[in-house]
Amino acid sequence: MIFQIKAKVFENIRVAQEYYKIILFCPAIAESAKPGQFVNIKVSDTIEPFLRRPFSIHQAGNQYPETKNRIEILYAAVGIGTQLLAQKKPGEFLDIIGPLGNGFNYMDSKQKATRQILVAGGMGVAPLLFFAKRYPLNGMILIGTKTKNQILCEKDFEKLGLDVKIATDDGSRGFKGRVTELLKNVLRTTQYARRTMIYACGPHPMLQEISRISKKYNIQAQISLEEHMCCGVGACLGCVIETKQGYKRVCKEGPIFNAQEIIWGKNTL
């Protein structure tokens, strides 16, 4: 079931640098949302910017008292849409549609794997924290950013008992280099190369590299993709991505895909 709701802004705070967290009151979406799903938000009351903006759900639901009847969105205020969102004050309302998309498949993990590696590139931590809070995991999360000030949710993941490993491009924290290099290290040097499921969210080049690594190590990976979206409900066919079974809609058959089904090309974001 999809809902279109005028959701009241509960809180909208800056968490680090250009990163913000907005908390919205919307019981129907909060109750039914699954990790990996997203909401499509009208950030402006005018026609500028014109389209809604999709955001993956960061936390939701009644499992924890702090998210009861609420959903949280973690976002970077970097474009016109997200900068407008950053200006929303508590008490204001936002028109949101959700929950949308398929969400991560945890059952797959239970059946085929005994461990999980979560891989987040920058904002990619957003849906992964929701996932880690919802399901009992046996594993670690690798968080990659450009520099140490951009690392988000580190303590939240630690609280959940996950082994947190950091990679920064500039080496200001943890492993110096790409998070995908760190992943390769982990797979080379630990038991993680066997009976493991990867869950990843981040920029497309990172996800493409994860597809390559997961193929090489013959382990499965579920990746969260992004595309320009319009309707968000599967009607406009605007957000397709090429897969081995033809074009699939990121908003409907995705945003979570099996890494091996994607055909990476110049046309992916």
């Binding site: 910017p49 014109f50 320009h228 397709v240």
Partner: peptide, 9 residues
Amino acid sequence: PPRTCETPA
């Protein structure tokens, strides 16, 4: 793809 993009209005 990409099949869509936003433009002014």
